Amino acid sequence: MGVTALGWTLTVAVILALLALDLFVGVVRPHAVGFREAIAWSVFYIAVAVIFGLVLAGIVGWGYGTEYFAGYVVEKSLSVDNLFVFVIILSTFAVPQEHQHKVLTFGIIAALILRVIFIALGATLLAFFSFMFLIFGLLLIWTAIQLFRHRNQDPDVENNVLVRATRRLLPVTDEYDGGRLITRLDGRRVVTPLFVVLIAIGGTDILFALDSIPAVFGVTDEPYIVFVANAFALLGLRALYFLVTGLLDRLVYLSVGLALILVFIGVKLVLHWAHVDLDPSVPEISTPVSLAVIIGVLTVTTIASLVKVRRDPDARAHASVVTRGRPRSAETRTRRRQGSEG
């Protein structure tokens, strides 16, 4: 694409301004988010992402514009899966509603930083080693298989390696102390449960970055598009959480849909590797076709989920489990949620 230094600077400035706005709303002015506010912020972030895509397409052409929108849709769908785990973490540790803003904003910033690192690493590997397209493709196919196998399980957050290590190495109080991460108990410094929650969120961000970066490289090999697609998908995550928290359980086939999308992108990467390294006659899958397939799978998944829940009101969705800790049953999750609500 030949993005200039000025282009990168302006893009990063816009993203940082949006992050600053998120920080102001979520940290400086903590409060419980209502449904109307969540809708307003969600519409705002989606509108910003769409406007950016239209401006990008107008400047560099619809070829790159289509790649951006395909990458954005992929990352947005994966971010919904990310929300499942956030819901489990916040309910498991009974995070007060007025502090959920802070946790989610931290999760977004940490995810963005980690994905910048992985984007740089992935772009470098693809530039120097074309067989990395094969590796990324096989990784996505393996991830999809694991996603499908564990589609009816949730991760056990408290048995996460980082959470266990934190509890073992640091003194942790059982009580929240406002929004503090560190407090004093009996004259000594201890960390609060909020500190442990941030550790769990950070560990989750690492694992989701490992999944999402190869996926978005499957629809574009432009680091700039990979970065902005990730950034705009993540920036709306906080508002989307408060908007769809009560609706996430209804997306019972989300894991199946995501598994199909990851398999499709994995095959696309393998075909691209074979086309470049083995035989130019090997067919490739175009970006417009990719975008159509991704949107189609998500549409069918959503409609099928709503039909399933209408026919079976007890049906519930689960967070995807690949390498995100030991799975736990839906009954365990229900008991924890009931306990946190009480």
Rank of each mutant, 00 (worst) to 15 (best):
G53T: 04
G53H: 03
L54E: 02
L54D: 00
L56H: 11
I59N: 01
I59V: 15
G61M: 08
G61F: 11
G65N: 12
G65E: 09
G65V: 11
G65I: 13
Y68M: 06
F69N: 00
F69L: 13
A70Q: 07
G71S: 09
G71N: 04
E75A: 10
S77L: 13
L78F: 14
D81W: 07
D81Q: 06
N82W: 06
F84M: 13
F84E: 11
V85P: 01
I88V: 15
I89G: 05
S91L: 06
T92R: 06
T92M: 05
F93W: 09
F93S: 12
Q97Y: 09
E98I: 14
H99P: 00
H99K: 12
K102C: 10
T105E: 08
T105W: 11
F106K: 05
I108G: 04
A111C: 12
F118G: 01
I119Y: 03
I119W: 06
I119P: 00
A120T: 08
A120P: 01
L121S: 09
A123V: 09
T124Q: 04
L125G: 08
A127P: 00
F128P: 00
F128E: 11
F133M: 14
F133L: 15
L139N: 03
L139C: 07
L139D: 04
L140I: 12
L140E: 11
L140C: 06
W142K: 11
T143G: 07
A144K: 02
I145R: 06
Q146W: 15
Q146K: 14
Q146A: 13
R149P: 00
H150T: 04
R151H: 04
N152V: 10
N152K: 15
D156L: 09
V157S: 01
V157L: 08
V157N: 01
E158Q: 13
E158A: 09
E158G: 06
N159Y: 07
N160M: 13
N160G: 14
L162C: 01
R167W: 14
R167N: 15
R167I: 08
R168I: 07
L169G: 01
P171R: 12
V172K: 02
D174W: 04
D177F: 07
D177G: 06
G179V: 12
G179Q: 05
G179C: 08
G179I: 10
R180N: 03
T183Y: 09
R184N: 09
G187F: 01
G187Q: 02
G187W: 00
G187T: 03
R189M: 05
T192I: 15
T192K: 13
P193M: 12
